[in-house]
Computed example of a mutant assay.
Amino acid sequence: MTVRVYLVAGELSGDILGAGLMRALKARFADVEFRGIGGPRMIAEGMVSRYPLEMLSVMGLVEVIKHLPELIRVRRDLRRDALAWRPDIMLGIDAPDFNLGLERQLREGGITTAHYVSPSVWAWRQGRVKGIARSVDAMLTFLPFEAEFYRRHRVPVAFVGHPLADELPLVNDREAVRKDLGLASDALILAVLPGSRANEIRFLGSTFLEAAERLCHRIPRLHVVLPAATAQRFTELERLLVEYPVLRKRMTLLDGLSREAMVASDVVLLASGTAALEAMLCHRSMLVAYKMAPATHWLAKRLVKTDWISLPNLIARESLVPELIQEAANAAAISERLEAIFNDAKGRQVLERRFAWMHETLQRGASARAAEAVEALIEGRELPQSVAPEIADAS
């Protein structure tokens, strides 16, 4: 019997996740068909894509409002298409603002639905979980604390592990990567990642570079590695570096290669976001600092319901890495905290072992586990329970 799976991905990261899930589903079902919206990777796996992936890649309030009539038309067409095709299951991959509404409509039409990649409902606007419960038969989460949140709210959930943890090795070779990047093996190396977005460079770029230059005066062996996320970020950072001549002599500006920079480093300075998770999965000590527009920060303080902003701390449920936010994220404070981390070699070693253990708890074969949950939903069975080991001190 042919199994029909309707998938809707909203951006390139969703295309990567969707392609991995499709491969895992083809390994479970002898005959499976895929339809919906996907990118080049999903199409290569056999997806019949109704629209280009870019159709849903709309960022920012103004852009969403501008494209809202078209997005409504696309969702209405997908609803008609899915109800006519009658898939065994529909999965929205990320893009919650678009997908949760579609999932709810299809579920009301008698189709089993699931959502792959939890929105940050545990952090802000927690009341959204009631709408999620009406939209999906199950939520598939990357992180264990997300699964705990849904269980508390009685939403069926499967913790599948994180694909990035599957991608990154449990053992990495710092010395080999330093050699590849032309970095001295005996240097103390700071990787600086101010972010991939223009606004992050605007709010954090100069602060991070000034902090690194201050640190150069304090630590003679320090070498700074600065990976630029895009060609545009490379140009912006080159322009900023003119103001920091001491730092410029003690640093390497890279075109991309952020992961290599983190592996080569002793300590990472970064903006909050996925980069903090990646640094954790590279098993490196870090300092997380973040600034935003004053009005955005004022609103965030009133809406966000969490004690931490960085994923390593959220996963561990404790303050493993320092976080400096808004006014506290100034060059003097950042350089002082970084100096303390560099001076505590034993503390860095303990944290690297802890991060390796946390990495192992998240490295669970996410695509295969997601496919296992999908199969259970299609067959009307209970979701497989995959509870992570307690993320305790592994030192």
Rank of each mutant, 00 (worst) to 15 (best):
M47L: 14
M47T: 07
M47G: 04
V48G: 08
V48D: 15
V48M: 11
S49Y: 02
S49R: 07
S49I: 03
S49P: 01
R50E: 12
R50N: 13
R50W: 06
Y51I: 04
Y51Q: 02
Y51D: 03
P52V: 00
P52H: 00
P52R: 00
P52K: 08
L53I: 11
L53T: 09
E54C: 01
E54M: 03
M55G: 11
M55S: 15
L56A: 01
L56T: 02
S57I: 07
S57F: 05
S57Y: 01
M59D: 01
M59G: 03
G60H: 10
L61E: 12
L61F: 15
V62K: 14
V62T: 15
V62P: 08
E63D: 13
V64G: 11
I65H: 06
I65E: 10
K66W: 10
K66N: 12
K66L: 11
H67E: 10
L68R: 06
P69H: 09
P69Q: 05
P69R: 06
P69A: 06
P69M: 02
E70T: 15
E70M: 12
E70D: 13
L71V: 04
L71G: 06
I72V: 14
R73F: 00
R73I: 00
R73M: 01
R73H: 08
V74F: 02
V74D: 02
V74S: 05
V74A: 04
V74G: 04
R75S: 08
R75H: 04
R75D: 02
R75M: 06
R76P: 05
R76L: 07
R76Q: 12
R76W: 09
D77C: 12
D77H: 14
D77M: 13
L78P: 03
L78I: 01
L78T: 09
L78A: 09
R79E: 15
R80T: 11
D81Y: 00
D81W: 11
D81G: 01
D81V: 00
A82R: 10
L83D: 05
L83G: 00
L83Y: 02
A84P: 13
A84V: 08
A84Q: 14
A84R: 15
W85Y: 11
W85Q: 04
R86G: 07
R86D: 09
P87I: 00
P87R: 04
P87M: 00
P87H: 10
D88E: 08
D88A: 10
I89H: 05
I89Q: 09
I89V: 14
M90D: 12
M90S: 15
M90K: 12
M90T: 15
L91T: 07
L91S: 09
L91I: 15
G92T: 12
G92W: 00
G92Q: 11
I93A: 03
D94H: 06
D94N: 04
D94V: 05
D94E: 06
D94W: 04
A95I: 09
A95T: 00
D97C: 06
D97G: 09
D97H: 07
F98E: 03
F98Y: 11
N99G: 02
G101K: 14
G101P: 10
G101D: 09
L102K: 03
L102P: 02
E103A: 14
